[in-house]
Each structure stands twice: as C-alpha cells, then as structure tokens.
Amino acid sequence: MNIVVLIKQTFDTEAKIVLDANGKIDANGVNLIINPYDEYAIEEGIRLKEKLGGEVTVVTLGGARAQEAVRTALAMGVDKGVVVSDPAIDTSDDWANVEIIAKAVAQIPFDIILSGRIAIDDGASQTAVRLAEALSVPSVSSVIKLEATGDQLVATREIDGGTELIEVALPAVITAQKGLNEPRYPSVAGIMKAKKKPLKTLTLADLGLSAGDLAPKMVVTKMTLPDPRKAGIRIPGEAADAAKELAKLLHEEAKVL
C-alpha cells in the first residue's frame, strides 16, 4: 500500500504570538513542531504500512526549517520525505497550497492520503479535504478509528455528539482526529536511520507551476492580537446571588456560553 502523509510544521503550542512591523506574525525565534494532529496521521500511516506493507511518504509545504519536521517523521518510521519549498508559499492561500500539493502528490503513487484534521496555527482545517477534491478522491474527516484492507477503508469519524461509520474505496483521503492512535516515540535506531533516508526538496518550478498560477482566492487584510486580559474580579454576595451573577457575566460579558 502506498501511503502519503501530509504534514505541516507549526509554531509550538506555547509560542508567544507577536506581530512584526508589517502587522504579520513574527516567526523569529519561535520553536517549531509538527502539527500535533499530523502526528496522528504519521502514526496511522506507519501502522498501515506495518500491517499491509508498502511505503509511507511524507509531504510538506514549508520554509527552510520544514526539513526538520520531515526528519522527525522519518525517524518515526516514514520511508521518504518530500518538501516543497518556494518563496511563493509565503503568500499563498489554502486553495493555492492545495494546487501545489496536488501536483506534488500526483508524482507519488498513493492509495491513501492521511493528514491531521486541523493545523493548530491557522486553524483552517481545509487542506486535506480540498486536496481530496483536487485529486478527485473521496475523503473522511476527523477519523478516530480506521480499519483498512487492501482496497477499502472503514473509518469511524467524529461528528457533533456522536460518530459515523463510513466505508470508502481506495484511494481516499483521511484526516486524523485525536484519539485515532498514540503517536510513537521513535527508537534511537530509528533516529539514526532517519538521517540516511531520502528527502527530496522541490520548488514550484519543479512541479511545473509558477507564482502566477497561484493567485490567492482569499487575502488576509489584517491581523490583530486579543485584548489584554482584564484584571480578575471577585463576585461578591451569597452563593445564590454570586452564581447568578457569574452565569450572567459568562453569557453576556465574556460571551463564552
């Protein structure tokens, strides 16, 4: 089985978000990690390979440091890595990214494409499903359980308040939700071996694309930071009154309910 795992390198979950002089997110000095949901996808890809044989290729789109993420995936047990790196990616939107990835993936034989259900940076949750469409294959998103045979998948996906069981013929795209598996730590041998595994770097030109093909559909007009946290307040009064007041504040002021 040929397995492709689409991953993204994101800011570490603790990263402090700062805007630079241009009002853009400042990535300077920020620690980068593999998007945690993509780790489930990597793990599932490796498990599928372990069960059914074949090869796992990880594909990512990113800057100079994206190779680190791919090396990490290789250490976990992925066989090959592909990094598409091009300055044009800095301003591309979800649609354009999918155009690029679709071209890159088209060069790799695939039966199943796995990815995380969401990236914790932009939170867009679009790429994998869009990619399925771009490649004209079905997709199942937010999967928490996956059973695969040679030519079909049975996936349990999370929906609001329950689950769905979906059967789909291969090839297909699956997005991983937390709970699908527990990503492994690589053996040290795996880490050593990863240093020697093939890692291919491609530019847009290598994929027959140019920046002009990728005019974004969506543009970011500005970025802002949340208002600073207000000083906490103690709600006075007896239990009943305080509880009522609290409920009101949460609903009307904080708007979290």
Partner: peptide, 13 residues
C-alpha cells in the same frame, strides 16, 4: 482566530 485564539486574522475575497 488563529494560533488557538492567540491572534486574529481578517480575511476577504
């Protein structure tokens, strides 16, 4: 919201 609500982006098309 992006970065788990640590920032916001405004998008249009």
């Amino acid at each position: 919201p992006i970065y788990a609500g640590k920032a916001f982006e405004f998008v249009s098309s």
